[in-house]
């Protein structure tokens, strides 16, 4: 399988805190790759590094063989047109309605006629099931709908890859089901490379071809769903099983309780 995104020996820190420590991973073309890990492992940061919004301290990120952080601003913007990103909140432009939000990248980056834009937008909205909602404003949408509109916007320019930032957080089971189906369908019918960053274990494992589990800036498990499920790494077992205690302790470090009570 041909790699689409290659991350090589990536190190990134925020202040004193090391977020990624010599991280390497490969995201194959045309598949759904899941990157999982608990909150605070820098999953969103990873997406921003891939998209060139943040710069690593060392190491490199290759997209289509190009080093993202060595590109000129113009070349980086060129690259981003081939990338779609679904933000956690949707990040729709609040002063535009649904139709104009989806049309936005087309109007900014193409010289298509208004009629052509309308066709494309309706097609993308149809794909996410919200053609009927085109006149609504972002404030009138539910969280799940906003994410679907954002997805339609992310694929408006027919990108080669879509990065999903925690797409399932805070969604009801029906919306989750809809989003899962959409991610899978888009991946399949458009031949997209999909990177899904999430900690919703079961949902993600149901659609992923390839999984990476991160902890403390490193990959602790990788491979297909089967391999990760059968991993005997204690951390991975705790994470996948949702166990309250394990390598990640239940208690925040503290002196023994007896001592504190003066017993």
């Amino acid at each position: 399988m041909q790699p689409h995104i290659e991350i090589e020996h990536l190190t990134f820190r925020r202040g004193e805190r090391i977020i990624f420590d010599d991280l390497s991973l490969i995201i194959p073309r045309g598949q759904v790759t899941a990157v999982m890990g608990p909150s605070g492992t820098g999953k969103t940061t990873l997406l921003k590094l891939i998209a060139g919004q943040l710069r690593p301290e060392s190491g490199r990120v290759l997209v289509d063989g190009e080093d993202v952080h060595r590109l000129s601003r113009r070349a980086l913007f060129e690259l981003r047109r081939r990338m779609g990103m679904l933000f956690q909140s949707g990040a729709l432009l609040t002063d535009l309605n649904v139709f104009d939000n989806v049309a936005f990248p087309l109007r900014e980056h193409t010289r298509l006629s208004e009629a052509a834009i309308e066709r494309i937008v309706l097609m993308k909205l149809q794909a996410v099931g919200l053609r009927g909602a085109r006149h609504l404003m972002p404030s009138e949408l539910s969280g799940g709908m906003a994410r679907r509109v954002a997805l339609a916007r992310a694929i408006a320019l027919d990108p080669a890859m879509v990065l999903y930032d925690e797409p399932f957080v805070g969604q009801d089971p029906i919306t989750m089901g809809v989003l899962l189906k959409l991610i899978e369908k888009l991946n399949h019918s458009l031949g997209l490379t999909s990177v899904v960053v999430s900690h919703d274990v079961e949902e993600v494992l149901s659609i992923a071809h390839q999984v990476y589990v991160l902890s403390e800036g490193r990959v602790v498990a990788q491979g297909n769903v089967e391999a990760v499920r059968n991993s005997d790494d204690p951390y991975v077992r705790q994470f996948l099983g949702g166990l309250p205690d394990g390598p990640v302790p239940f208690h925040y470090p503290a002196p023994p309780f007896r001592e504190e009570l003066g017993l």
Binding site: K48, A51, Q53, F77, E78, R80, R81, M83, G84, M85, F87, Q88, S89, A91, L92, L93, T94, F104, P105, E108, H109, A150, R153
Partner: peptide
């Protein structure tokens, strides 16, 4: 609400 980030991702400065 990440709108500025989203603009950057859509290659709009």
């Amino acid at each position: 609400t990440e709108q500025l980030s989203a603009l950057e991702m859509m290659a709009v400065d």
